[in-house]
């Protein structure tokens, strides 16, 4: 019913054509990628390319939606009305960004309802960072500064991703997100320069969020399952380790400006490399959280499922109303 035309397109596009036609299509696709042109929804594309994109865009969308929870946790308790307005607008943006991304995924012939179902049943993942709890108000600052900071570093190259709808969604998201990181930095800066208790709260947040933020860039290049192919397809433009290094280099002087200490005894400037060296990441923790055993995995998904199930009668009502008043509704069904 939804995305009907698109599903047919996608089905037509992925139907196995004759072998010679197949190689001609593949050739045209490769030429477009080679010329750094965008692939658009109705173009022929290899099934593996389509699947990779659906997986990545859906995971990205799920992350935005689940990411609303840890920050939403503090909206009703924000300590000033100004901060409350900022946080509410930011969490609202995340819902919006999730929607932009689901819309991009739907151009690949999948339905949002199916993607949400995959999220609800654990068949698709979201960023592991959101399985950590926001224990104090300073965590709102740490998420803005570090988590959004890491996300921006990941997202900037995605604006040039080979798949048009994804790239365009990222342009919009990057533009809107510029305030997210700044508000987090400002929030932490005020805490770090506030009372001793506030400073301690800020340091504690940095201590807890630093390492999970580094893990946001994914496993080391040597162990990254999808990296090489994604780079060849120009879905991805930089390796995980490259982006992680960029994040560390950018964050160190920012932490100094905040007057906070990054919790890594091995962190130091390496003159020879022109980069900061940093300590070894505990990938077992990452794997544990990924496997569903982080502090909040269960509650995040349960809360999302609850909202969805509680809304079922509302969505049914809206559809029933549309059917009764079909002059205003959709003809397709």
């Amino acid at each position: 019913m939804t995305a009907q035309a698109r599903t047919q397109d996608a089905a037509a596009a992925v139907a196995e054509p004759e072998l010679s036609a197949q190689s001609e299509l593949q050739g045209r696709f490769d030429d477009l990628i080679g010329a750094d042109e965008r692939i658009e929804p109705r173009d022929w594309m290899p099934e593996a390319y389509r699947k990779t994109l659906v997986r990545q865009i859906a995971q990205h969308a799920h992350s935005e939606i689940i990411g609303m929870q840890p920050e939403g946790n503090w909206i009703t308790r924000a300590p000033s009305l100004r901060r409350k307005a900022i946080l509410l607008a930011k969490v609202q943006d995340e819902a919006g960004h999730g929607l932009y991304l689901y819309a991009a995924a739907e151009t690949l012939g999948v339905d949002r309802a199916d993607l949400l179902d995959a999220l609800h049943t654990g068949r698709q993942k979201y960023s592991s960072i959101f399985n950590y709890p926001t224990l104090t108000w300073a965590d709102i600052g740490a998420i803005g500064w570090l988590v959004d900071g890491a996300a921006i570093i990941n997202q900037i190259p995605l604006q040039r991703c080979s798949y048009g709808p994804y790239a365009r969604a990222m342009v919009r998201i990057c533009k809107e997100e510029s305030f997210h990181q700044r508000q987090g930095f400002e929030l932490l800066h005020d805490l770090a320069h506030g009372t001793p208790e506030q400073h301690a709260m800020a340091q504690d947040a940095l201590d807890r969020w630093w390492w999970p933020s580094l893990m946001m860039f994914g496993p080391p290049d040597a162990e990254s399952a999808h990296s090489a192919q994604s780079m060849a397809w120009r879905i991805k433009r930089h390796s995980n380790d490259e982006l992680r290094q960029r994040f560390v280099d950018i964050s160190v002087p920012q932490a100094e400006a905040l007057g906070l200490r990054i919790p890594d005894p091995d962190l130091r400037w390496n003159e020879e490399r022109g980069h900061h060296d940093f300590g070894v990441i505990d990938w077992t923790e990452f794997q544990e959280v990924l496997a569903g055993n982080g502090p909040c995995n269960r509650q995040r998904v349960a809360s999302r499922v609850q909202a969805h199930e509680d809304g079922e009668w509302v969505r049914e009502a809206a559809l029933a109303y549309a059917a009764k008043h079909s002059d205003k509704g959709v003809a397709a069904a």
């Binding site: 019913m1 939804t2 995305a3 739907e106 339905d111 949002r112 309802a113 949400l116 179902d117 969805h308 079922e312 969505r315 049914e316 809206a318 559809l319 959709v330 397709a332």
Partner: peptide, 8 residues
């Protein structure tokens, strides 16, 4: 199963 609303 969930009720998906139409796409616009």
């Amino acid at each position: 199963m969930s009720t998906g609303l139409p796409l616009w």
